[in-house]
Write a protein that binds this DNA or RNA. Structure first.
Lengths: 225, 225
DNA sequence: ACCGTAACCAACTATCTAGTTGGAAGTCAA
DNA sequence: TTGACTTCCAACTAGATAGTTGGTTACGGT
């Protein structure tokens, strides 16, 4: 096994382990075992458990930036898309959440580039909104990401607030529709986007929009907790 | 020291410890020490570290329900209010977050009553929105909570997306305004009172037209499942 | 005072865990 | 082959940690 392959195996194993148990809960022995590599390699290549976590997070943050990329021409459907992605890749959002709890002020490697890249994305969103790039557009982007991710971040709260029907495939679909509608209203986009459906200020039909959404799921990514 | 006082001291200490370090990261010795109580009492009264965490969470969830209570007559300012509360009580949101990562399907004690109580709140929100209580109103409530909490849940993401100015008192204030505007637009409530002078100026665009948008949707076929 | 019950605690233990060590097995060049 | 270098690993260690134990102190009734 080459050096790189070993490192990759460790990173992949660490990713699952950290996603499932967080930093404190993760066990280096489990990581090594799952990677089929001797534990000592973790220290040889990464230095410590925590540094390994940081390396994992750097990759994850980049992926995150990738996903969140290109709000494209339709900020509304954008939210649906992110939502679906998070739903299909729970471990991504779990890692983000662990990281946020760990949150130390000192930046992760490459933070600066990530910020820069993100600024580019915000420009794209600004274009989609027909506005100039500005901190406020960036805040909108932050908010859209939050809306899409929230149901997956706080499942128990969801069950408390929404009730039993929060969960399940059906529940997720309903939530998705709700989010898309919410954002549509917030951004004041009455169907100007190419979507076929009539925006209907007046409720009723409801379902119409969800259909337009282009696929929803695609379950992938095993790694359940 | 009476039994109750000891238990309370332990719960309070546990709350800080768990908020700071999570379940796996928390140390029972630290909890006992901070409570000024012998560690063994934790096992005597609560059974285990994990059960202690559950007890803490039951209290926290109740508080959460309390805060989230009474959307009252103005759903828009409601979001600002929750936002401020979370900002002022970070440990509450941290505990919620740890818990969500821990998430085991089996409900915490009293989950049912919490759900019931929350349903009552949703009714209040429905009234504020001028709509009938429905699962969709509950979803709106979930979304509003998410909007208010998101910046505190994902500070690092905030810094990446929004940039340096995300943090600090100024940053929080800006975010708050943004959120309130966003919700106002989404719920189609024109500004009544003199809230929020629009600092960013950005705001305007949406508010106007969004008013028309009115409500979002109500799913036709009642409840699934 | 006496007794039973319940709160309390110092010290202990069995286990677990991050991190280390010293050397074996490959790799490549001369 | 030799020798320098790198990747790899089984076994080890020092310290931490959740959970126990056995006994002591406070308390409330009779």
């Amino acid at each position: 096994m080459s050096k790189e392959a070993t490192k990759d195996a460790l990173l992949a194993a660490a990713r699952s382990e950290f996603a499932a148990h967080g930093i404190a809960g993760a066990r280096v022995d489990r990581i090594a075992e799952r990677a089929g590599v001797n534990k000592e390699r973790i220290y040889g290549y990464f230095g410590s458990k925590e540094k390994l976590f940081d390396r994992v997070m750097e990759v994850v943050l980049d992926e995150m930036a990738e996903v969140v990329a290109m709000p494209g021409d339709d900020p509304v459907e954008y939210v649906g898309r992110i939502h679906d992605f998070y739903l299909a890749h729970p471990e991504l959002i779990r890692l983000m959440t662990w990281e946020s709890l760990h949150y130390r002020e000192d930046a992760l490697e490459g933070q600066h580039e990530r910020i820069a890249r993100c600024a580019a994305k915000a420009e794209s969103l600004a274009a989609g909104l027909g506005r100039e790039p500005s901190p406020d557009v960036a805040r909108t982007m932050m908010t859209l990401i939050g809306l899409a991710a929230w149901p997956m971040v706080m499942p128990r709260l969801g069950r408390i607030v929404v009730g039993e029907e929060f969960g399940g495939e059906e529940g997720h679909l309903r939530m998705r529709e709700h989010l898309v509608d919410f954002v549509r209203a917030a951004l004041g986009r009455d169907a100007d986007g190419g979507t076929a459906e009539n925006s209907t200020g007046s409720t009723d039909g409801s379902t119409g929009n969800a259909g337009s959404a282009g696929n929803a799921e695609e379950s992938g990514d095993g790694d359940a907790r």
